[in-house]
Amino acid sequence: MLTLQCPYCGVQCDETELSPGGEAHLTRFGPGSDDTEFEQYLFLRENPRGVHFERWRHAYGCGKWFHAARCTMTLEVFGTYPAQVTEPPADLIEKIREKRPGWRWRDLA
């Protein structure tokens, strides 16, 4: 069972208390963008075998969106952080690098 800590209310939530929201830190494209940009934004995903950054919503709790770093192979959680950022916090990236040498995610390496 997956357990994540909500960074807003501090509750350790069971996955039944949460709604998954897919890949985090997507660049949104709007009117005037070309087809390739829309494809990137709407469909193309990292889908890594390893540590992934995701959006989650504390649906049956405070109701807020947050981000989580989680391994898709082992379900190990590296940390959660608020949603008001465009990239993962540096100390979290450092922590992942330490535990998973050779890990990369998009252009983070």
């Binding site: 069972m1 997956l2 996955e15 709604s19 889908n47 995701e54 898709t72 192979m73 082992t74």
Partner: peptide
């Protein structure tokens, strides 16, 4: 199916 990406070949109990 699970709602989030994973490769665990077991899935969530709920």
């Amino acid at each position: 199916a699970d709602g989030y990406n994973n490769y665990t070949q077991r899935g969530s109990f709920h």
